[in-house]
Design a protein around this nucleic acid. Structure first.
Length: 421
RNA sequence: GGUUGGGUUGUAGAGUGGUCAAAUACAUCAGACUGUAAAUCUGACGCCUCCGGCUUCGAUGGUUCGAAUCCAUCCCCAACCA
């Protein structure tokens, strides 16, 4: 299939027709910025966890398109904002996290940014940390310079505060978050000539706050108030209008340790048919007409391509191919199961007499013995294509062919039990 | 600080002395049908040495043969008033 080239002449149209554009401050102005001479664009992420998830990646992908079109991009990692906690969309206050934790996360996220945007080459992305300019900004000065431009009534009415306000107990700490993020935009404008901030739609309130602050300050300083523009991408939702990227184990993480490429691939191969075209438009650059044609002709083939391409984008070609191979080995015909999720056992374990369910529990297939027992009763635990009927069944040497046994929960959850000497 | 109403098993939300491991819905998991999709139907959904037992209803202590339910103290939340 043919891929579309991203160029600066049609960047805005490209983003729009692929479904990246949700809200913006001034459409005409943003079109000019996108399709005109190189500008500086930024998007921010708080290091509150040790990995980015698919939602973050989605907005980074938008940033990448700006970069590919020749614009300068800045990725802000919020070392300061992470210490405060963004109230947007939350109905409880974020747990306070300590500085060490933020520092560790910062390093990990920094490594992950490179999966989305280019950090080398002739137009590398810049990574900045807002702790650099927030820490050390005198409180009184900050309140006088920045705080005076914020109307609390507006803030309370904003989407960012609304769920927290409804749930009650909105703290001053959380309200301060918006001021900091708003100031970040101004800072980046002054130091990097950044004119556009992008992000997920949940960030709209904070982003616009930054744009408004910038306008006010520019107005006071007799500069162009149009220098601050905001653009957000829609929330990734599925056909049932539910947030995408949520798995039984939590978010769909970018980090291999948290979500294996296989799990990642499986997530996308299991999405609703109706979401396939949307995801292909967002995560690949294939011609839209070809995407639609393929989906009409063979939805399952299109879904496979989608799952593969997204996995490749995040984990690289090798891991994506492995994930696909494992998947096909289990669910299709052919292929091998070399790289399936595995669990190691020793011969001593077998001699001691281990229950099948014990291994299922240790390998994470089931949550408890009670859980396993239920599954057995309902015919949901299968070993080497044989239904396990006795919850106390012991693993035997004969269960291992070629040194491994295959343990399944239902048809989608599989662990390869490897027998070591 | 005061008054009132609250804190229940993933979420929402019943239960206000024994019949409560705790209604119901959603989410989740398994089975059937399929295409590893959707829709539908069935079952499960605290833990264990599972026809039995054990630990849960903000925390601690108490009343009682018996408490998620009553009392006391404490912690947290909301609304209103200061």
């Amino acid at each position: 299939m043919k891929e579309v080239k991203i160029s600066r002449e049609n960047l805005f149209e490209h983003l729009k027709e692929r479904g990246f554009v949700y809200q913006m401050t001034n459409e005409e102005k943003i079109r000019q910025l996108c399709n005109g001479d190189p500008i500086t664009v930024y998007s921010g992420y708080d290091p509150t966890a040790d990995s980015l998830h698919i939602g973050h990646f989605f907005s980074l992908l938008m940033l990448k398109k700006f970069q590919q079109a020749g614009h300068k991009v800045i990725v802000l990692l919020g070392g300061a904002t992470a210490m405060i906690g963004d109230p947007s969309g939350r109905n409880d206050m974020r747990a306070m996290i300590d500085g060490d934790f933020v520092q560790k996360n910062y390093q990990k996220l920094k490594e992950m940014i490179g999966k989305a945007v280019e950090l080398d080459g002739n137009n590398p992305a810049i990574i900045v940390n807002n702790a650099e300019w927030i820490r050390g900004y005198d409180y009184v000065d900050f309140m006088r310079n920045i705080g005076q431009h914020f109307n609390v009534n507006h803030m309370l009415a904003s989407e960012a505060c609304s769920s927290r306000l409804k749930a009650g107990g909105l703290t001053f700490l959380e309200m301060g978050y918006m001021l900091i993020q708003a100031y970040d935009f101004v800072y980046l404008n002054r130091h990097y000539n950044c004119k556009l901030q992008i992000g997920g739609s949940d960030q709209w309130g904070n982003i616009v706050a930054g744009a408004e602050l910038g306008r006010k300050l520019n107005f006071i300083e007799n500069k162009d108030p149009e220098d601050f523009q905001a653009l957000t991408s829609p929330l990734l939702t599925d056909a049932n209008n539910k947030k995408m990227g949520k798995t039984a184990k939590g978010a769909l993480w970018i980090s291999k340790d948290k979500t294996s490429p296989y799990e990642f691939y499986q997530y996308f191969i299991n999405v609703d048919d109706r979401d396939v075209v949307k995801l292909l438009k967002l995560f690949t650059n294939y011609e839209i007409s070809e995407i639609e044609e393929l989906a009409k002709k063979d939805i399952r083939e299109a879904k496979k391509l989608m799952a593969y391409e997204i996995t490749k984008l995040i984990h690289g070609e090798v891991d994506a191919k492995d994930a696909m191979k494992i998947s096909e080995a289990f669910f299709g015909d052919g292929g091998n199961i070399e790289d399936a999720p595995s669990f190691n056992l020793t011969k001593e374990d077998i001699e001691k007499g281990v229950r099948v369910l014990e291994i299922a529990l240790k390998s994470g297939l089931i949550n408890s013995f009670s859980d396993g027992r239920r599954l057995v009763n309902q015919g949901g635990i299968i070993m080497n294509n044989n239904l396990i009927k006795d919850p106390n069944q012991i693993l035997k040497n004969e269960d291992f062919n070629d040194g491994y046994a295959l343990l399944k929960k239902g048809k989608k959850n599989i662990v390869k039990i490897i027998l070591n000497n």
